[in-house]
């Protein structure tokens, strides 16, 4: 079996405003960037998607979805008025299992999740909407441990990387995460949306510049301060995980889109190897 490889990586926003309501034309730049990311990813002919979502929160270590065919109806606890998110996708069980084994061997606490009705989160489903609209590709879904820091997420990403290589997969890895995490606490019209936190826009752009210029270690070093200033979505730890999976050499990053979602910062970043 040839060694597997990761063919693309992405950071994408996970709020449902980008897919619901279906006929909305709001936040066009971000929606179009997500569509472009999905198209580029499919063009790379992956045979699996690995999605780490900051909206799937775990507390006792990490969790990995191992149910063969998660299906059901998801209603977001905040944005239920936008519409429902039905889902029906397939899990790459072998890749999920190997990821768990390698992560545990690296000292992480990781649990498989195989339960009917287990709630698949909004961030994962928004990513699937753009990257796997016909549910043709199998998926591995990974939770975001609220207590995990840089080292743990790098290890978890490395476990994904090693599992992909070991099983010969062509994979696209996706971190579903926002940037700055300040938002409007009152109702707004879509047309009123903007990055709401003082200084958040500048901090987001600085972080995006670091990433786009390939200064990944510098970006990771800057992360605690960035997260503190901007209330970043789960401290933007999805980036640690992604770098753990991609490695930091021979990787080029490009921002495909950037903008607000209900005051928070959101970007679509593409990583090519």
């Amino acid at each position: 079996m040839p060694d597997g490889q990761i063919v693309k990586g992405y950071i994408v926003p996970g709020l449902p405003h980008l897919v619901l309501p279906r006929d909305s034309s709001s936040r066009a730049e971000l929606r179009n960037a997500c569509r472009l990311a999905g198209a580029n990813a499919r063009q790379a002919r992956p045979d699996v998607l690995v999605i780490f979502s900051t909206q799937w929160i775990s507390v006792l270590g990490h969790m990995v979805q191992t149910r063969p065919n998660p299906k059901g109806m998801h209603v977001d606890e905040n944005w239920y008025a936008l519409g429902d998110l039905p889902y029906d996708f397939h899990t790459d069980f072998d890749l999920a299992k190997r990821t768990i084994e390698l992560g545990v061997a690296a000292g992480l606490q990781i649990r498989p999740v195989d339960f009917e009705g287990f709630p698949v989160d909004t961030g994962t489903l928004v990513a699937l909407d753009f990257f796997n609209p016909k549910n043709e590709l199998p998926v591995v879904c990974i939770a975001c441990n609220i207590y995990a820091g840089r080292e743990e997420e790098l290890k978890l990403g490395q476990a994904v990387h090693d599992a992909i290589r070991a099983l010969g997969r062509r994979a696209v890895v996706i971190g579903s995460s926002g940037l700055s995490g300040h938002w409007f606490t009152k109702d707004i019209q879509d047309s009123e949306d903007r990055i709401v936190g003082d200084g958040d826009d500048a901090e987001n752009r600085r972080m995006l510049d670091l990433i786009a210029s390939g200064k990944f270690t510098e970006a990771m070093d800057a992360m605690p301060e960035y997260a503190r200033k901007t209330g970043a979505d789960m401290q933007f730890k999805a980036f640690f995980w992604l770098i753990g999976a991609l490695g930091s050499k021979n990787v080029k990053a490009k921002t495909l889109g950037y903008g607000p979602v209900w005051g928070s910062g959101a970007a679509v970043i593409e990583f090519s190897l």
Partner: peptide, 28 residues
């Protein structure tokens, strides 16, 4: 946990399967 204000259930009946995302092995 809600971001915009305080939310109140306002549907005559709610029914379904609730699986605890943290302790799914204990609560379905």
């Amino acid at each position: 946990m809600t971001m915009v204000g305080h939310h109140i259930t306002r549907v005559p009946r709610l029914k379904g399967l609730s699986v605890d995302p943290i302790f799914p092995h204990l609560f379905r």
